[in-house]
Design a protein around this nucleic acid. Structure first.
Lengths: 191, 191
DNA sequence: ACCCAAAGTGACACATGTGTCACTTTGGGC
DNA sequence: GCCCAAAGTGACACATGTGTCACTTTGGGT
């Protein structure tokens, strides 16, 4: 290293995440990012050729981190333990689903971008298959209702963490309630 | 009417809805909208002074329509019937929650916009209170679990219809499954 | 102390979106 | 058939974001 960098990769990706969630894909600009990092806009072009490339790199970084943790779900044998682990994980990455959706909006113009996009699709598929595997184990153990489509169960769990907590319900109560709705719904048991 | 208009208000608001959902607030432009309507960009300025004003009007239109239908929930006395009516309604307006969130991104610059924004907040509050009233009736009838926060139940129901149906599960099966998860969860009943 | 490669900057040319305005087109009323 | 007000157009001046490039700054290796 010859000259100290004014920002780390972690700084950059964190700022990118916040700006993407706040402003969406179209509202995200190099100007905003540079300002947040306290650096000139052109400095960013030293690392990323354009906005699409930056966001692709960011998605890769984010999904890689998430997948590392998701794979650990197989450290648990019982479905119940896997379920608890997954919900804990999603609580710490509530917007993973949202970010992936934003990533789908990136226009793929050239070959270089195409390759990254394919690699990202691969990661996305890994994630999806890992989650479907989890659901199928749940069904195999007789814990999850067999007649509900796998994809709905997966989507539903991911979506659950995006319900906005406007009323500022304490975090532990909020999570506990989400868990309960996912498991047994919001209706009382007696019919 | 002296000269026939090339597009109706319904055309305009429908196109606005589609573009907003596709491109987000920042990605939505008068150019895109004009192109979709087959009209020049400047024609749109005859009806709306700027993008913020247009989107406010759109939100009002959309929320008014939704509220007209939502108020009919009080035509039903039993909570179970209200529940069925609400889910049916949300199935036909799946993105109402998403649109409201996009509306929150509109910067309020001047007095005229401020007034519209306040009126919109009023409608939003009406909707929220109507839904909370529904939840409280459910709890009163002993149908909904009393210990789950009202706001979570409301948010959860709204969010449920945003789970993407990638696998193209037939519509009736999809809705039936969503209903079941909301009511009794995704876990089997035997513990 | 000097070298030099990596880090960062400011300015430029370009592209796209905004809001306005003078103008043209349309079609029912007189 | 003419009038005229509403509907629509094209061009202009402006603002903001993009990508590039020649330039400066930094700091460890020699």
């Amino acid at each position: 290293m010859v000259r100290e960098r004014k920002f780390s990769d972690e700084d950059l990706f964190l700022a990118t995440k916040e700006l993407l969630l706040d402003y969406g894909y179209e509202g995200f600009t190099f100007g905003l990012l540079a300002e947040r990092l306290g650096v000139s806009r052109s400095a960013l072009y030293k690392y990323f050729g354009n906005k699409e490339e930056l966001i692709m790199e960011f998605m890769m970084y984010e999904l890689d981190q998430f997948m590392d943790k998701l794979r650990k779900i197989n450290d648990y044998n019982r479905f119940e333990d896997q379920f608890d682990y997954l919900l804990e994980l999603l609580m710490n990455h509530p917007q993973i689903h949202q970010l992936i959706e934003i990533g789908r909006h990136v226009p793929v113009n050239n070959q270089k971008l195409k390759e990254k996009n394919d690699k990202l699709d691969g990661l996305h598929l890994d994630m999806y298959q890992s989650l479907v595997g989890f659901v199928q184990q749940g069904k195999g153990e007789g814990k999850l209702k067999p007649h509900i489509p796998d994809t709905l169960i997966v989507g539903y769990i991911l979506q659950s963490f995006l319900v906005p907590n406007f009323a500022q319900i304490p975090h532990s109560e909020w999570v506990q309630s989400i868990k309960e709705i996912i498991r047994n719904g919001m209706f009382t048991d007696d019919h």
